[in-house]
Structures are given as structure tokens and as C-alpha cells.
């Protein structure tokens, strides 16, 4: 999931009887699958939770450009470079759709970005891992975007209208990302040298577990899930989505001719799902706290980008003001 551990500020989910008339009307709309729009009444915590979740989601798209940016100048062919740039431009677009949805709630984009840069806002743990070889670009597209799609497909039905519409637009574009990633890997596995095939397996070995962590902690460790589900901000639990991702990914892994770094991964006939090994949650929480392999570097890159671009933004405003004066004088 691109938003992990979103705090709802709520201890226990209220029943309809415990709610005042406004909140009850709001909850009944949600229960009836009627979308909430910007100008509708909403509980303060619903608004705050959404701002937290959508901004985290947007930050993830923006920071998500960095591991890929590492390979723009290193892509093996012009074709791959163009595809990568198109994908990165999409990620920027996705971030902006989401910031735009977030602003309908009264949040300010620049303020939320400042929270990211000062380390007060989170983004997905996955982007704090390095992209060490070209196969990582394939594995990121296939696994990371694949996990994001599983999460985002269900978010198209989220209860807040602007968020849901941003998700619909994003999902239309994501499938290109996943397919181009998988094609990179498939090409290397079918036409590559042994060294290139080893690269694919190495990328999968490193990114498999972090991709599974993207869905967030197990349901037992997700104190905010119940409220987010009652508000229909979330539509499925972390564990449900993780299982769905694994079930659809393993057959693709087999087509590649690769393996997952999980000796416990096997089909369970009785459950109708794949069983899988224990996730190292210790690592997840450390990365979330800022101690992953690339956390510092990612935030530093973002801060530099904002600082180094300050003169461009100032020049744009000065130019706009000058033109306005000229028009007024004419």
C-alpha cells in the first residue's frame, strides 16, 4: 500500500446510535455507497485521516520517481530510456492528481510537502530501498507497481469522491507501468546472458519482501483499520490485499522462470491461496522510522530539488507580474 499506518485519531468505532444527527446522516450516506464530496459535512477525523492518507499516497508517488531516476542515464537502449521517462512523468502526474484531491479537503500542498521534507509526513517504505541493477527497473515496475495496483484498484471505490476519481485516472495509467516492468524481466530471462538472468533473480530476491511490506502491518497490528473500513476510506484489510497480490504474482514468477526468496511459499489447496513465510516486521518499522538504506538520501534529494528550483519559481512569478502590468498599461 502507498499509505501505511494512517492514524485515524479514533479509539473505537461509534455505532449509529452513538452519533449526533450530522454524523449519523454522514455515516448512512457512506453505508449506502454515496460518495462524500468536498463541500459535504464530514467528521473532523474523517477529513484529517483523508488528508494524511492522500498526502502520504502523493508523497509516495513523488519520492517513487527517485529510485527510477537513478536509471534514466543508465538505461541500456534509447527505447528503454523513453519508456522509463514516460513512466516517471506519470508518477509525477499521479502525485499531482493526489495533491489536487487532497487540497479539496482544505489542506495546502506546499505545507504538506514541507511536512514531508522535515520528516513529519511518511511515504511508502518501499522507496527507501536502492535500485542497484537494471533488472531492478523491471522488478520495480512488476512488483512495486503491481502491489500498488492491487491497492489502488480497490481504492477506486473509496468513499471520498475526489480521491476515488484520482484513483480511477491513476489505475488507467498504472497497467502500462507494470507491463513494461514485467517485459524488461521477461526479455532478460528469454534473451539475456547468464549474468543478466542472475541479475533478474537478484532483483527479485531483494525486492520481494519489501513489496509484500507495502500493504502495511498484519491486520492484528493495524489499530486504525476498523475506523478506516467503517468510513470506507479503506475497502479491504492489509492481509486480504497482500494475499491477493501474492496469488496473482506467483504464476507470473513461474513464467519468468525465477523463484521467490521464501522457502515457505507454496500453494495451499484447502485455502485456495498461496501460503507464505513470516514477514520481518522489524525491518518494516525501522524503514518507516527513517532507518532504511535510502531514507536520508531520498529526503535530501527532495529538499535539494525544492531549494535549487526556488529561483525558477520566483522568476515565473516575476514574469507573470510583469506581463500583468504590461497588459494593464496597454
Amino acid at each position: 500500500m502507498y499509505a501505511q499506518q494512517v492514524e485515524t485519531g479514533v479509539k473505537a468505532v461509534k455505532s449509529l446510535a452513538e452519533m449526533g444527527p450530522e454524523e449519523r446522516a454522514f455515516q448512512e450516506k457512506i453505508d449506502a455507497e454515496i460518495k462524500i464530496e468536498a463541500k459535504n459535512w464530514m467528521p473532523d477525523n474523517y477529513r484529517k485521516t483523508l488528508i494524511r492518507q492522500i498526502s502520504q499516497h502523493a508523497h509516495s508517488e513523488i519520492v517513487g520517481m527517485l529510485p527510477e531516476g537513478n536509471w534514466v542515464t543508465r538505461a541500456p537502449t534509447l527505447k528503454r530510456k523513453l519508456q522509463l521517462m514516460a513512466k516517471i512523468q506519470d508518477e509525477a502526474g499521479h502525485g499531482l492528481y493526489l495533491y489536487s484531491a487532497m487540497e479539496t479537503l482544505g489542506a495546502d500542498r506546499d505545507e504538506e510537502i514541507e511536512k514531508l521534507h522535515s520528516g513529519r509526513a511518511k511515504y511508502s517504505s518501499i522507496f527507501n530501498y536502492p535500485t542497484l541493477n537494471w533488472a531492478d527497473m523491471g522488478a520495480v515496475g512488476w512488483l512495486v507497481d503491481g502491489a500498488a495496483i492491487v491497492n489502488q484498484v480497490v481504492l477506486q471505490r473509496t468513499s471520498y469522491g475526489p480521491y476515488s476519481r484520482a484513483m480511477i485516472r491513476i489505475c488507467k495509467e498504472e497497467s502500462f507501468h507494470q507491463r513494461q516492468g514485467y517485459e524488461i524481466l521477461l526479455h532478460m530471462m528469454r534473451h539475456g546472458t547468464q549474468a543478466q538472468k542472475d541479475m533478474v533473480q537478484d532483483a527479485i530476491n531483494r525486492l520481494w519482501w519489501p513489496s509484500l511490506m507495502m500493504f502495511g502491518p498484519s491486520d492484528a497490528e493495524s489499530p486504525n483499520s476498523a475506523q478506516s473500513m467503517a468510513w470506507k476510506i479503506k475497502r479491504h484489510t492489509n492481509d486480504e490485499l497482500r494475499q491477493r497480490f501474492i496469488d496473482q504474482t506467483v504464476p507470473q514468477l513461474e513464467i519468468l522462470g525465477c523463484t521467490a526468496p521464501d522457502p515457505d511459499l507454496k500453494w495451499n489447496e484447502e485455502r485456495g491461496h498461496y501460503d507464505f513465510g513470516e514477514i520481518q516486521w522489524e525491518e518494516f518499522y525501522e524503514v518507516l522510522k527513517g532507518n532504511g538504506p535510502c531514507n536520508r538520501e531520498r529526503l535530501e534529494t527532495r529538499r535539494n530539488a525544492i531549494q535549487d528550483g526556488a529561483w525558477v519559481r520566483e522568476a515565473a512569478v516575476a514574469h507573470a507580474n510583469k506581463k500583468q502590468k504590461q497588459q494593464a498599461a496597454a
Binding site: 514516460a86 502526474g93 492528481y97 484531491a101 484520482a166 514574469h319 507573470a320
Partner: peptide
């Protein structure tokens, strides 16, 4: 379709083109 930030209307058109009409 959504919104964009820009210094003026002309730049808003350019940003909107990049953001909402890539395909």
C-alpha cells in the same frame, strides 16, 4: 478534470497539458 498550480493562466494551460493530456 482537476486542478493545477501555476504562476499565471498561460502557465496553467502548459501544466494542464502535461498533467491531463499525456495520452
Amino acid at each position: 478534470v482537476g486542478s493545477v498550480h501555476a504562476a499565471d493562466a498561460e502557465m496553467a494551460i502548459e501544466n494542464a497539458r502535461d498533467l491531463y493530456t499525456r495520452r
